[in-house]
Design a protein around this nucleic acid. Sequence first.
DNA 1: AACCTTGTTAAGAATAATTCTTATGTTGAA
DNA 2: TTCAACATAAGAATTATTCTTAACAAGGTT
Lengths: 158, 158
Amino acid sequence: MYPHEQTENTKELKARVEAFKALCRSRSLRVTEQRLEIFRTLAQSKAHPSAEAVFAAVRKKLPNISLDTVYRTLASMEEAGVVFRVGLSTKARFDADLTPHYHFVCMDCGEVYDVFPQPGAPSLLVPQDINRFGEVKNANLQFRGICNRCRAAAGKEK
Amino acid sequence: MYPHEQTENTKELKARVEAFKALCRSRSLRVTEQRLEIFRTLAQSKAHPSAEAVFAAVRKKLPNISLDTVYRTLASMEEAGVVFRVGLSTKARFDADLTPHYHFVCMDCGEVYDVFPQPGAPSLLVPQDINRFGEVKNANLQFRGICNRCRAAAGKEK
DNA sequence: AACCTTGTTAAGAATAATTCTTATGTTGAA
DNA sequence: TTCAACATAAGAATTATTCTTAACAAGGTT
């Protein structure tokens, strides 16, 4: 890596960390060393690390951090929209309907709903350069959010 | 459900089961009661059941079936392209890059690669009626397949 | 129809991923 | 500085999935 690139990256990283701090404050989430370090790690990585991998990296700076803190923090960062979770919740679900359609998955209860493309909509186009990585077997488009039932339930309990 | 619908559905189910048997034979997979019952259960369900849920349903017909058999069978059915797995493998991965892009996920090693949309490509359009189900927080398009590294490794071991 | 060969299964132990419990520590508002 | 609320570490507990092993059964062969 060239020095000027490093400078650029360092600048950008600092800016992102500041933005993260501001976001935390705006949500009345406390700015802890653990949260900052986890965010820095993730913001610097291009490897889509697992919770375990983030844990290993952060540990070098904060040897006493617990894996649970990493899980909790990643979840709250996802909630805040600062990071993106690749994949889904831990439980696999299956579908025997092979006609082209997508899924709406509730981030709260895990329920899965079928979503069919609008008639006449262009079919999903696969980016060309994907073949650089390997052989594609299938595509999976899912939308995540909170289903009506969970939203209603969350409203009531207040 | 109206009687004639049931007849239609039953007919269609039988046809699908026959096709499944044929597929098994063509792949020299043995046609066992367990496989048939698991396939029937899944083909009749619109609930995107989990392995556990399939297990519970199949158990009513085959009280001695094991959960492990359900897992094994679902995996082989996915491999055969008969069912679709909603979501991903069990390990969560995270990404701090929030610019619009997709992922290519290796079904073998779990590695995640970034895939960027082609310049000028229309952005992903969200089907209108998705709002029937709840509030969408984000969209996730992923392609699954075998990455070059795993393909090479699989080739060697033969 | 009995007979193998080999793939398949049940049972339960083992592992992997994630979450919970509880006591202690820390942030940031007053 | 004080203190309430929130966050953390540690490790136990839970959940989801996979492995191990011995018994079993499918389907080709005789």
